[in-house]
Design a protein around this nucleic acid. Structure first.
Lengths: 346, 346
DNA sequence: CTGGATTTCGTAAACGTTTTTGTTGATCAG
DNA sequence: CTGATCAACAAAAACGTTTACGAAATCCAG
């Protein structure tokens, strides 16, 4: 409970001067500033967040909204933890804190977001898993809350976003598998109206078309983007008539890939031997046998880009990041493995 | 930006009365209270968090600390998301919010916690993955911050905690495997000094001793508690001389189990056929083939118990939860599967 | 020297809310 | 009818900080 008042009293200074010294304001003698800094350190003084944000009208906190409960979204895994880490290295430069705002499964996500915003929990927000049409975007824009989306959406208010290059993954994946003789290529799509599903399918369709291959809706496998989903797809494939089955598959979710490998082994279609797999790289996928042919990107760098793009839209920080409104597709690098062998002849 | 002042002005009331009406204080006419509630609703008024917590000296927020970065702890997964959900159902009854405080991999966890506490981010904290000796416990106790630990520790200040029954899992697991003829039983232990490692090993040792079986340190396999770790253990087992290899294994981490299954298949020791596995149940483990013999508990109920035990130590809420200082080991229920077959004869 | 600029600091207002204390009628017991 | 109790509200203080403003001291140019 050491407040700024005690600190000032102990130093024979006014609280105003102490505050300015702590905040690096110009009109304070450098010598006294050192005195203040030192005293604050030894007394363990840290400014009270409530008082500070009440006065400043800003909290110094950026929120990342995520839903709790039995996960069907695949959020909360190592993917986001790595992205967060990148975000935080940028935020640390500005004394900004990142917290995860946990929306209970019992509360409506839109209502939760409104509550969070109105209460002034955070100065800015990061949203992810954007839907085809996403109300959160409308709302945040209308309330003039700085935010950035990880993922595109048809709901477009000219807001900043970053997204993975799903088009590139579909195109490159199809190209590789076709070159190896595959004619029936399956892909994954989410069950809900997450935007990436639409993007991914459309790019997949276009890639097939360009190569004169038919687009077969039965080769689109919908599932939750987690281990269970990947496992179930493998079994669904095995349940198809042999001549209808795909011989290769493209997916993008890391957790899913683990389950898919598991499932393929179970149904007697071992990856890299009887079935070709291309997915996204991840620390968790690294140990897979055979080695996964995959698309790699640095999640930490993604987080850094995300943070910088967000700060570029916040008046108080924009000067340091003259990026304008960032709307960018992040490319991935192909890593050749052994999971996408040529199609079995005969 | 609709403040309580505008609301009061619009209603021809003083801000004090409006505040009391909103907060359910007694000395306000029921009719005017309705008027206030209605107006607040239509105007979309939500109390400003900064002003409120400045005045009240409390934030209405409970923080769960977790570390970001490439995860080696296995946190951030579906385990915690499910626990969170239970916590939140209790918190919702008291207008308490749960947020995840994300400690960057570049910041010292202890320093981060001190900063969080001093700044007044949260009224109380939940910590997990407790270490054998855990400085966080000392610190929180010395600062008189209400908190609860998910996990025991040798650092004991009489604080509340909940923990899974690792002793029970070790004892039951060993008993089952021994009954099926297994003589060499391996177990998992974490690489760091997480407390559960000590507890688990000790219980395992005791269970063997009671059955006259030798305790062999080579049967303790240390790894990170994630898919990769489980995978690596399977390969480590296969690399042992055949007569030194365990024929069965007990582990408790859900992610790890997935990697372990994968690895066992890879090394030609398919679970349930040539190698016995017992682990903890989880949504992710449900699809495993063969069906996992496992220990089940409701993570949601665990979260509820956690929240109630925490509130019992917070003066403002203790009256509703006369539990005293909760220090409890949560039992798990055995679910019989097909992964722990009898040891192969010959 | 002198007047204005500059440096350094103190004073006080302000942020939005909750809560304590007062104040006004109305009600009630005697 | 009178004094006390009570219900319902208003007024104002308080939470801890930042910042606009002003004041004193110092400096410098002329």
């Amino acid at each position: 409970m050491t407040g700024i008042r005690e600190l000032a009293q102990r130093l024979n200074l006014s609280i105003g001067t102490v505050s300015r010294a702590l905040n690096g304001k110009p009109d304070v003698n450098e010598q006294t500033r050192q005195r203040v800094l030192e005293a604050a350190n030894t007394m363990g003084y840290v400014p009270n967040q409530a008082g500070r944000s009440l006065r400043k009208g800003a909290t110094g906190v950026v929120g990342f909204m995520m839903q709790t409960g039995a996960q069907i979204t695949g959020e909360g895994d190592v993917f986001f933890m790595s992205v967060f880490d990148g975000v935080q290295t940028v935020f640390a430069r500005h004394q900004l804190d990142l917290v995860a705002l946990l929306c209970s499964s019992e509360e409506d996500p839109d209502a939760y977001m409104q509550r969070v915003v109105a209460r002034g929990f955070a100065d800015a927000l990061i949203i992810s898993a954007t839907k085809r049409e996403d109300h959160r975007i409308d709302y945040l824009a209308s309330r003039n809350i700085p935010f950035i989306a990880l993922g595109r959406s048809q709901t477009d208010v000219g807001h900043p976003w970053l997204d993975l290059d799903f088009e590139g993954m579909a195109e490159t994946g199809v190209a590789r598998l076709v070159a190896k003789g595959h004619r029936r290529i399956g892909i994954f799509a989410p069950l809900d109206n997450t935007n990436l599903g639409f993007v991914f399918i459309e790019a997949y369709r276009k890639a097939l078309e360009q190569r004169g291959l038919p687009f077969d809706p039965d080769l689109i496998f919908r599932a939750h983007p987690n281990e269970r989903g990947g496992h179930d797809i493998a079994h669904a494939i095995a349940a198809m008539p042999p001549n209808k089955q795909p011989t290769g598959f493209i997916l993008t979710n890391e957790l899913m890939t683990l389950g898919f490998y598991n499932g393929l082994y179970e149904v007697g279609l071992p990856p890299g031997q009887k079935f070709a797999v291309i997915s996204r790289d991840s620390p968790q996928a690294h140990f897979l046998v055979p080695k996964l042919t995959s698309f790699r990107l640095s999640l930490r760098d993604l987080g850094i880009a995300l943070a910088e793009a967000l700060l570029a839209t916040m008046p108080a920080y924009a000067a340091h990041y003259p990026l304008g409104v960032v709307r960018k597709i992040v490319p991935l690098e192909l890593v050749e493995g052994d999971s996408d062998m040529p199609v079995a002849t005969g």
